[in-house]
Structures are given as structure tokens and as C-alpha cells.
Write a protein that binds this DNA or RNA. Structure first.
Lengths: 122, 122
DNA sequence: TCCATATTTCAATATTCCTTGAATAATTGA
DNA sequence: TCAATTATTCAAGGAATATTGAAATATGGA
């Protein structure tokens, strides 16, 4: 994932409705959720949801399939994972040891890639 | 990090100039970069860069300190790491095994948290 | 103190994005 | 084929964001 794609993904996720939709789809799993159900659950108009779904699709964060009359949307786990990777790379760029001071969750950089003492001169 | 904070972070990162600034600061490390230097390197007006820096600061993605006449900005590694964690949680929510099919980089979910066979019915 | 430097703030404009409701398209069952 | 269901597209208006240049603020040195 390059900066351009990441920008597109961040833009898509930077809107309340869209972030909620993505989270709903992630929780729903590969089964997905039809557009109408999304609108219903979120109390939004069909056209508004459609607008945001298109935006998410453009960013490659979701995919869709027709199932009878409904169009069922699913989270794009691949794209989300790539975004995580992009962020991690950024987070670690040139300064792998920084991660250690970050938090207790090993959120940034796999431990195996850490360098013992990366002397950073301030 | 809750959805609200994540939204704020995504918004901040969803703008070309700001994403570039963050990446520049990450690469620069804890030493940071003065506002003027950022503007210079990116060929942008001082006021424009200032506007975007304020936005990034509001989202908690950078921090600043005065150093003589300059104001030096640094990447907020903590916040970036938290955003990674937020994304990972989303990515894995309720469907830990999905990660395996994602990519070769173990981007999503620590391996230790994987469940052997999480039967997902489509 | 006065001037130069470094940056921010402000106001105005331009641009982009979101929401709404009406119209259009696709699918299924009677 | 007709009507009902499900969704998308379109155009218009409103809201939020970005850019610009000028003015204001803070710092440090002569």
C-alpha cells in the first residue's frame, strides 16, 4: 500500500457514518450485511448509506455481491490489514526501538524486527 | 482509544499535506522538525503548514516544543500506535482466524490470540 | 529598546464533502 | 408483464475544510 492508497483509506474512515459502517461489517464477518439493513440499523436514508458505501468501495475497504434483490456488503479485511501495516511501517520508520516506549500492547512493529539499541541522537 | 478519537485521527491523516507531515516527522524521530523547515521542505506557505500542524495537534498525533525562536514538532508515536491497535481490534473483531488469509506480514492480530478453527458460517 | 526571525491568527475566498428527496434501475414473485 | 422490493444515481442546497495574504505575537540578539 502506497501513500496514495493510504490517503484514500484514511479519507474513507474519517467520516463518522463510514467508520461505523466499516465496524459493523467487520463484526458481521464474511457473511456481510445488505445495504438496506445497514441503513435500518443506523437510522439513515437509503441514499445516504449508498453514498457512503460507494465511498468505502472506492477506497477498497469493502466489497459487495448481489444476493437476490439485496446487495450485500462485506468488510475488506485485506485492505484494513494493509492499512495497519502501512501505519506500523510509518510508526517504526528508522526508529524501531521507539515502539518499546509506546504501550504495553506491542502495537507497533513485530518484536522480532526490533533492533537492540538504535542510538538516536537528538 | 475510542471511536471518537480514532475518527479524529483518521480525519487528521486524511489530508495529503498532513499525512506527508506526519511521515516526515516519524522519519525525523524524537529530534523533531521546526515548523519553518517543514514548510520549506514541502514548498508550502508558513500559514498553511501552521494550519495543518494545528489540526494534527488537535488530533493528538504530534507534539511541539519551543526551541529558541523555532517551534519544533515531533510525531506522536503513542497515538499512532494506538491507532494501529484500534484498527487491529476492528480487523479481528469476532473473527480472529481471518487474519491468516490476509497477507504474509502478520499485520493483523498477534498470532498468540488466534483461535484454531473459528467456524464462520457464510 | 529596536529590529529581524519564526510562527500563528485572522478574514475572505475557494473547494470539497454531506445530506436530502425525487427519479431511475434491477430483481423477484404473482 | 405488472407491481413490489431493494438499491443506486442525480441535482440542489448546506456545511465543513483548505488556501491565501496580511496582520499580530513571541523570541533573541545588537
Amino acid at each position: 500500500m502506497d501513500e496514495r492508497q493510504a490517503l484514500s483509506a484514511f479519507s474513507a474512515l474519517s467520516q463518522e457514518t463510514r467508520l461505523s459502517i466499516v465496524r459493523m461489517l467487520v463484526v458481521a464477518g464474511p457473511e456481510g450485511v445488505p445495504a438496506g439493513t445497514i441503513a435500518e440499523r443506523m437510522n439513515l436514508s437509503a441514499s445516504n448509506v449508498s453514498f457512503h458505501l460507494k465511498e468505502l468501495d472506492r477506497a477498497g475497504l469493502i466489497s459487495q455481491r448481489r444476493q437476490s434483490r439485496s446487495i450485500v456488503y462485506t468488510a475488506g479485511y485485506d485492505a484494513l490489514a494493509e492499512l495497519v501495516t502501512f501505519l506500523m511501517e510509518d510508526c517504526c520508520a528508522g526508529h524501531p526501538t521507539i515502539r518499546n516506549s509506546v504501550d504495553q500492547q506491542d502495537a507497533c512493529c513485530p518484536t522480532s524486527e526490533l533492533i537492540e539499541q538504535d542510538d538516536i541522537r537528538a
